[in-house]
């Protein structure tokens, strides 16, 4: 049944936005669990935690971080778009608002990715 969240054939951009919202929600949930497990490692000592940091804050992991930021930013901005409509506002402009929210998500993602690139690569 849940596979039908991802039916996009013959559908409009709104269904694609919905499917991506679901997909990014699942990704963020998995990430949250991993993140909490990761943070818990500090209970095993500073050295253990820092060894985790040394493993993940690396150029090899940068692509995953960039994709994670994309998922997070898209989910957040699209969520705000949904809240606007669910408060009873701007249905008639929903297409424009969808385009604007995707544009905002892309801009924020590019800026965040650039900053992460500079931080990790040290350039």
């Amino acid at each position: 049944m849940w596979q039908r969240w991802f039916t996009v054939k013959g559908r409009s951009l709104f269904s694609i936005a919905f499917s991506l919202h679901r997909l990014t929600g699942i990704v963020l949930t998995i990430y949250l669990c991993m993140h909490l497990a990761y943070l818990t490692s500090i209970r095993m000592g500073k050295e253990v935690f820092e060894s985790f940091i040394a493993t993940t804050v690396t150029p090899q992991f940068l692509i995953f971080d960039i994709l994670l930021i994309l998922a997070g930013v898209y989910h957040g901005v699209n969520g705000l778009r949904l809240i606007i409509h669910e408060f009873g506002l701007a249905y008639e402009s929903r297409k424009s608002i969808l385009y604007i929210s995707v544009a905002i998500a892309l801009i924020v993602w590019l800026i965040a990715s650039y900053r992460m690139y500079v931080f990790v690569m040290g350039v």
Partner: peptide, 9 residues
């Protein structure tokens, strides 16, 4: 969940 596909079709 406001997929809004109903309004589109």
């Amino acid at each position: 969940h406001f997929a809004a596909e109903c309004s589109e079709v």
